[in-house]
């Protein structure tokens, strides 16, 4: 049985593909979206346990997606990992403001991504101990 369902969002098909393969090999179900608008649709329909989200995308960027998802009952608590090539302080701050659970920059270490996914999915069922 899959360890959880993860939505991977990126406008680069190859990023979507490699991240999906990586997560599938670690035992997760993966659904994908190629832009921000599609991301919100898929998130509403599929109710993923976690979302891996790019920032720079056409139509609706990652910040917009996160803000939109945080506004909906169904997705308000879904952990979001921002996976982005942007290293600017302002993008980071905006992401944190939009409710990022984790911020990982590209190129990333696959182990780091998988570890972050695992940790976030576990802590979702537990009260934070501080």
């Amino acid at each position: 049985m899959a360890k959880g369902k993860i939505l991977v969002v990126d406008d680069e098909p190859d990023i979507v593909k490699t991240v999906s393969m990586r997560l599938k090999s670690s035992g997760y179900d993966v659904v994908t979206a190629m832009d921000g608008v599609q991301a919100v649709e898929v998130a509403m329909k599929e109710r993923p346990d976690l979302i891996v989200l790019d920032i720079r995308m056409p139509q609706r960027d990652g910040h917009g997606v996160a803000t939109r998802l945080r506004d909906s009952t169904e997705t308000a608590f879904t952990p979001i990992i921002f996976l982005t090539a942007s290293t600017t302080e302002s993008d980071y701050q905006t992401a944190v403001g939009a409710g990022a659970s984790k911020y990982i920059t590209k190129p990333f270490a696959p182990e780091e991504l998988v570890a972050a996914v695992e940790q976030l999915l576990q802590s979702g069922h537990k009260r934070y101990a501080h």
Partner: peptide, 26 residues
């Protein structure tokens, strides 16, 4: 800043594909 962004994306893709092959996932 732009160059680093533009370099990062393809590099990530190359690194990930190689990593997937290397780790036997593919």
């Amino acid at each position: 800043s732009i160059a680093s962004h533009e370099l990062r994306t393809p590099l990530t893709i190359i690194k990930e594909y190689v990593g997937l092959l290397h780790d036997g996932i593919a």
